[in-house]
């Protein structure tokens, strides 16, 4: 496409006007809100030499936070995928008293200030809290351990899977299940061979969203994590700590690692999602 036609798309007949305006607005908006702040992270990091950069991002305490942040986020997203699917299934397929209320409750983690969620979870799961005091005799400690981080990340990720799977599940004809049953498939076969593959693209999208949210989560985690170095410290906290010590370059260096790593994981998940969507004919 030549420059002239690119910027003068009126040559082609379009039903709706405003291609130029829409594209321009999109580019400016994305630049101001997303690209410029993110590139600032790289520019600030560039004030470091390679040696300094490597020393910061590979220090044992920082590496420990990567493991916790990404590990717990992946695990939380996986847990949310399984239970989010169950939740969405219950909401779509069954009718029970209070269904609309539960449907509304699903969105609460979206709306609640994360600090409130963090304090509430900490109060519940601390050794003297309602749930924590029940788990303590069993030798399970939740608050102030990596397990607490996981609980907080699961909490904030719930709506993502439910809300991405729900509309697909609503569109799914019960005829598919009836067809499978009439062909002799049992319930497990119907689920694994018919339903799950159909839902896979939506599940992957939900997984990616829940994962992305969990990696970036700060507010709810720092209360329940206890933030013990090498044990229950998350990467965003390291960044905040460095900022508080006026180590701006150090903070952006860690941020770059998070950014690149998150980007690669989301890219991989999206490619997987696009591939499976293509197989199910959803992109047509």
């Amino acid at each position: 496409m030549g420059v002239a036609t690119f910027f003068n798309p009126t040559r082609q007949t379009r039903v709706l006007p405003g291609f130029g305006l829409a594209l321009g607005y999109t580019l400016v908006y994305l630049s101001l809100i997303v690209l410029i702040p993110l590139s600032a992270v790289f520019i600030k990091t560039a004030t470091l030499s390679w040696g300094e950069f490597w020393a910061i991002i590979s220090s044992p305490r920082v590496v420990a936070t990567y493991k916790l942040s990404f590990g717990a986020s992946l695990l939380a997203a996986a847990i949310n995928t399984v239970f989010g699917l169950m939740l969405a299934w219950a909401l779509v397929r069954y009718s029970f008293p209070g269904k609309r209320l539960i449907d509304a409750l699903v969105d609460l983690p979206f709306a609640l200030p994360t600090a409130v969620a963090g304090i509430a979870l900490t109060a519940l799961y601390a050794g003297n809290g309602w749930i924590g005091s029940l788990l303590a005799p069993l030798g399970i400690k939740v608050a102030f351990t990596p397990l607490g981080v996981l609980v907080a990340l699961v909490f904030i990720g719930v709506p993502f899977v439910v809300r991405t799977v729900q509309p697909i599940l609503e569109d799914l004809e019960t005829e598919l299940e009836e067809a499978a049953a009439s062909l002799g498939a049992n319930r497990l076969q119907t689920f694994t061979k018919v339903l799950l593959p159909t839902l896979l693209p939506a599940l992957l999208t939900g997984f990616a969203l829940a994962f992305a949210r969990a990696v970036g989560e700060y507010g709810s985690v720092i209360f329940i994590a206890g933030n013990i170095p090498m044990v229950s410290e998350i990467t965003p906290l390291i960044i905040i700590t460095k900022l508080e010590q006026y180590d701006y370059a150090g903070a952006t260096a860690v941020a770059v690692v998070m950014l690149v790593f998150s980007f690669l994981m989301l890219l991989a998940i999206n490619l997987l999602q696009a591939w499976s969507a293509k197989r199910t004919g959803r992109n047509r």
Partner: peptide
């Protein structure tokens, strides 16, 4: 319905869209 060995054809086909034609028939 599993045990009745009836073939059922639906108005809106109810094909498994993630499977090829061959896999649909082989199901």
């Amino acid at each position: 319905v599993r045990q009745r060995r009836v073939g059922f054809v639906f108005q809106h086909y109810a094909l498994f869209r993630h499977m090829t034609v061959l896999e649909n028939v082989a199901f």
